[in-house]
Design a protein around this nucleic acid. Sequence first.
RNA 1: GGGCGCGUAGCUCAGUGGGAGAGCACCCGCCUUACAAGCGGGAGGUCGCUGGUUCGAAACCAGCCGCGCUCACCA
Length: 871
Amino acid sequence: MTTLPSAYQPSQVEERRYAQWLEAGYFTADAHSDKPPHTIVIPLPNVTGSLHMGHALDHTIQDAITRRRRMQGYEALWLPGMDHAGIATQNVVERQLAAEGLSRHDLGRERFVERVWRWKEESGGMITGQMRRLGNSVDRSRERFTMDEGLSLAVQTIFKRLYDDGLIYRAERIINWCPRCMTALSDIEVEHQDDEGELVSIRYGDGDRSIVVATTRAETMLGDTAVAVHPDDDRYRHLIGTEVEVPLTGRRVPIVADDHVDPEFGTGAVKVTPAHDPNDFEIGQRHGLPSLTIMDERGVITASGPFEGLDRFEARPAIVAALREQGRIVAERRPYVHAVGHCSRCDTVVEPRLSLQWFVRTGPLAKAAGDAVRDGRVRIEPPEMTKRYFDWVDNMHDWCISRQLWWGHRIPVWYGPDGQMVCVGPGEEPPTGEGWRQDEDVLDTWFSSALWPFSTLGWPEDTPDLRKFYPTSVLVTGYDILFFWVARMMMFGLYAMKDRAPEDAVPFRVVALHGMVRDEHGKKMSKSFGNVIDPMDWIERYGADATRFTMARGANPGSDVPVSEEWCAGSRNFCNKLWNAVRFALLHGAHTNGPLPEPSQCTAVDRWILSRLQQVITEVDAQFEAFEFAKVCDLLYHFAWDDVCDWYLELSKPVLTGDDPAAAEPVRRVLGHVLDQLLRLLHPIIPFVTDELWTALTGGESVMIADWPTADPRWQDPAAEAEVATLQKVVTEVRRFRADQGLRSGQRVAAQLHGLAEAGISDHEPLIRSLARLDQPGEGFTATGTLAVTDQVTVALDTRGAIDVAAERARLTKDRAAAEKEAAGCRAKLSNEGFLAKAPEEVVAKVRQRLATAEAELARIDAALAALPES
RNA sequence: GGGCGCGUAGCUCAGUGGGAGAGCACCCGCCUUACAAGCGGGAGGUCGCUGGUUCGAAACCAGCCGCGCUCACCA
C-alpha cells in the first residue's frame, strides 16, 4: 500500500502525472475508433501570447468537458493550436527591429517574413508549455498553426471559392484605417470610446446664400465636395441646388438634399467629405459627387496649401484658427464628448479613409449563419446571448478582409499589365510574364481563424479526421469574441461544408460562452489597475488543480468570474481535504476489490452515503450537461467535505479503527467505492490530485480512463437518509448544548439517551456517544441537564456540576422564538382559504408537516424551559 | 442614442412563484492520532425603492434610483 505524505504537494505530482498521461497516449484521439466522437477545437491563442487568467478559465472548462466525455466512452479530441495574429505579431517583431534601429522596409518583405518565422520558432508559443502545466489534455499530435501549410491551403481554397461565387470582391470604399499600423481594419477591430472634442459651426459662403455647418473634424473641410440638408427642411429649401464656397479652399460646391441628414442635429446642414467619412461617401454616391482625398496613410494633410504636411491633429486647430480669423466660426462647443473609433490593437484614433480593399459579401453567409441558430442546428449557451448573436449577423456590413501588412496569408490574386485580375486557386500556377504581380496585401487574421473547426481537421481534403470529428461538439469561448470569431466560423463553416446535410454542416453543435475573469471586486484585470494575476503564479504556489477548481467554481454560464488568491487557497484546501480523506481511508483498509456488499450487509450509515452518492452523480451529470461548472463544483465540494468527510468518515471511524474485522470489511469496501466514485466525478475539474489518489486507492492505471459514474437506483434509500438525519440532529444538538455550556470538547460527559428506539436509531447509540463525546452513565450519575432533541429523543447529561441556566434559557428562548415564528407562519397560511383552495396539495401537506414539527418543537422547548431550575 | 444584464449577509455570488443560502471574512471553543490548509459551535440580511398581479413575490409585471456590459455612420 502506498503511503501518502500528510499534505498534498502538487509539485510532487503534477509533472510526473502529466508525463505519464502523455506517455500512455491518453490525449491522442483515434479517427478510426468505433466510439462516438466528441470534438472541441481550442480558441486559438495568439502566438505572441502567454497564458493569462482568461485562458485558465477557458481551458479548465474545455478540459473538464473533454475529460468527462473521454471517461464516458467518447473518442474525445481536444485540438490545440495557435493563431499567427497578424498585426500583433508584426508589431512585436517591428518593435524588435526598431530597437536595432531598423524598420521592416529596411529588410524588405521576404526577409521580414523570415524574421517573423524565426521569432515564432524561438519565442512564440510560450502558451503551449503553460497549457501543460494547467493539465490540459490536448492532442498535441494534431496541433496546428494558422500559417502552416495545410491551413494556408485551406485559406487559399476558400478564398478562391468565395471569389468564384462572387462573395469576395475588391472595391474602393471608406474603410477604417489605422494611421499607426498603416492598415485597414474591419468594423469590429475598431473600439468606440467617448473622447472630448470640439463641435464647431462654420459659415460656408456669404450673405443670404451662406449656410452654417457643424463638424468635429474641421480638417476634413479641405475635402468637402458638397453641403447636404434634409429635403423637407424649410430653412434651407431655397438653397438646394445652389452652390456655396468652401472657406479656405475657394472651391464652390453644390448644396444637395439628402434624407440622411437629421434636421434636428446641429444646424441641420452637413458638410460632405466623401473621401473621409462613410456617411458622406454614401451621400457622394447618391449625388455623383467627386471624392477628394486630402490626407495620406499616415494622417498627414496632402491638400496643397498652408496646411499641407500637417498631421491631422495639428491641422484641426490650425484650420479652426484660420476660420476664426475670417470670422467664419459661428459657434464652438467644447468640450464636446462624442464616440470616437480607436484601433483595437494600438488605440490610435481610426481615420475613415477611401481605399481600394477586398471585402467578403456577408449577406448570404450571414443569413445562413443566423438560420443555423434560428432553426436549432446550433445552440448558444446561455440563451440570453442568442439575441446578441442575431443582432450582429442580421445587421452585418461587408467584411473588409485585406490588411496592409506583411505577416499573414497573402491575397492569392495577381494583376496583369493590362489591368487583368486573376484569382489563383490551390494547385494552380500564378500567371507569369512581364508586368504580372501579386496583390501586396494579406488577409485579416480572423479570416483563417474562421476556418479553424475544419481546416485543422484536414479540409479541403476529405480526411478521416474531418469525417470523424466534424462538426465539432461544443465551442467554448468568452462572450467577447462571439462576433470576432464565432459568427465568422459559422459563416465559413456552413459555406465550406454546404455539401453536407444541413445539420452536419455546422461548425459546432453548441456554443458555450463564459465570461471574463475579473478580480475579487469584479474589476477587469488590467495592467493599469495593477490587479493582474498570473495563473502560473497560482499553479506554482497552490497547484494546477487549485487554480482550475477556482476557475470552475466561479464559472456560471455567460457571467464574469471574479477570482482572488484567497479563493484559490480555499481550493487548495479542498484538494488537501480530499488527499487526507483518501489517506485516512487507505490507512484503515479501504479498497475497491470485489463487488459492493449487499444492502442487507450494510449499516444504515453505509446505505445513507451510498444513497447520497447516487443523488450527487445524477445532479453532477445534469449540471455538466448544462455547462453549470460552478454548480458541479459546489455539489462535489459539499458532498466531499460535508457528507463524506465530516459525517461518513467520522461515523465510520469506530468500526474502521475497531477490532472487529468482520464488521469493518463492508465499510472498507463501501468507503473505497464512495471515494473511487467521488474521485472520478472530480477528475475532469481537478485531474492531478484525483489521479494520484485514485491510483493509490484502486491500483488502477489511471482515473483518466476509468468509466464515468452512473447512478444506480438500487442504492436510493430514503429510510437510511432519514435515519442518519435524526442521528445528525441528536449529535448536533448535544454539541450545541456543550458549546453553550462551555464544556470543552475534550471533557467527557456522562449521559443517558432516551427514546432512541422510538426514533429508530438505537443501533447508533455508540456512534452518537462517540461523536457527541458522551460517556455511559456510571455510579452516582446525576442528570444536571436534560435536552429534548426531537419529540422522541431526550438526552440527560451529568455535567458534573450545575449547568449555566442562563445560557440554557437563552438558547431555548431563541429556539422558541424561531419555532413560534415558523408555527405562526404556517398557521397563517393554513387559515387562508385562498391558499387551501389554490395551492398544490403537496405544498399544503408540507406546510401542515412544518406546523406539526414546529408545534412539537414548541412543546418540547416549553417543557425544557419549565424543567429548568430557577437561576 | 439602441440593446442586454445586474442590484440578496462585511466581500464575491447562487437561489427565479410556496420554509432566506454558499464560500471567504467575523465571533466563541478546541492541537479530538486523516487533515490547524483542520474540528465543533455561533452571529450577521425589512432580498435597491415604489406600485401592481397572485391565496402566496427575493423571484412575475410596470415605473423609478444606482451600476455594469455591449452595439452605434447625429456630422
